[in-house]
Design a binder for these strands. Structure first.
Lengths: 205, 205
DNA sequence: GTCTATAAGAAGATAGAC
DNA sequence: GTCTATCTTCTTATAGAC
């Protein structure tokens, strides 16, 4: 990886642990293995590093969204999966979603940085809301809606059903971000949640 | 309010908006209406202000927990309320919980400060987990457990039922903290959530 | 592109008068 | 307890050699 990219990488790690203001330019340089002044050959100033991180993450997530949408809107490709969705498949879906969000390195560090900076930076607050509130809700609404229209889930309000699916996942995610030692317990709770969700919405009522 | 207390109050406001590192001692002093050096007659240094906030908030919440426990463990006082819990009462309970957390001034500012500082300060991370994860879960488990034992809610897993009640409330709370303009929509969603919760758990299955 | 040396400025904290 | 003046330290950023 070239130096310019390594600077972004180390900076993101540090920003996600301590927040922008607590990270010094010299600290980033140290991690990269250069001296602070050398860093200014790659970026105009400290803020430019921060902005470059946001730009890169934004395009990363735009690509990801594109990839999801291709599968998501192409009913012929996906419908078979979701029309045959058993409790086991629902468990796998929820677990994958959770573990991807939790362990994907960029996702995790970027989310923590957004968490720290959200009240101080309206742009980051909006990105957070998009990535961890609005996008998951609309994506999962679509998936669960397909499962429901196949008759495997039953509700008269897909939005609330999706909230009941996602809110506990989000809640467990924030717990693990704060304290990774709670991860095993959170995974158990996740499974119990999804099984219960399937029992609740998975039969005629 | 005396100066020493006003310093804590203004500091908490600033810390909750910008985080510890982005708040300057002179800024706190400005808000209080004194000069920075005068502030050092009240607190040894900037960190001491921060620590005093945590101490005060801790004792505030200990008192609150005591007050809740008196009602909570005194079955004879509360049981009548919870044994007659209709959907309307459940709505009120959820709404009160949500609006208290959302609008109580100390709660709100302290929560935002904890959110910002959680990854940089293990003590604050633990306080956050206690206040917004463990305590609400155990308190609400107790309440909902009473409602269930009165036959008004039905589940074989009170813990997961409580997660299904609280996680959406927590999720909506973090949305509103980040963007208060979403509060009206969040309140609608909250009501829809609780009504759905009551429909799900409130009848024999 | 990386370094050493250093400038420029910000922010925390102290001294001492009132 | 509050002020003005000031010290000290830390951090960003630049200059200029290699």
């Amino acid at each position: 990886m070239d130096t310019k990219q390594r600077i972004l990488d180390e900076a993101l790690t540090l920003f996600s642990e301590k927040g922008y203001a607590n990270v010094f330019v010299g600290e980033i340089a140290d991690r990269v293995g250069i001296k602070a002044p050398s860093l200014y050959k790659h970026y105009k100033n400290k803020r430019a590093i921060f902005d470059a991180i946001i730009d890169e993450m934004n395009s990363r997530f735009v690509e990801q969204a594109k990839a999801l949408n291709i599968n998501g809107t192409d009913a012929s490709a996906d419908s078979e999966i979701y029309r045959n969705m058993s409790e086991d498949n629902l468990l796998v879906l929820g677990r994958q979603l959770f573990l991807y969000y939790l362990h994907d390195d960029y996702n995790k560090r970027f989310r923590k940085m957004l968490t720290i900076e959200q009240f101080n930076n309206k742009e980051l607050a909006d990105i957070y809301t998009k990535l961890y509130v609005d996008d998951p809700l609309s994506y999962q609404s679509m998936l669960l809606g397909m499962v429901a229209s196949a008759g495997l889930l039953h509700t008269d309000n897909v939005e609330i059903m999706t909230l009941h699916f996602y809110a506990p996942i989000y809640y467990l995610l924030t717990i693990c971000d704060r304290d990774p030692s709670r991860e095993p317990k959170a995974l158990e709770t996740l499974d119990a949640h999804i099984k219960q969700f399937d029992r609740i919405y998975g039969r005629e009522r």
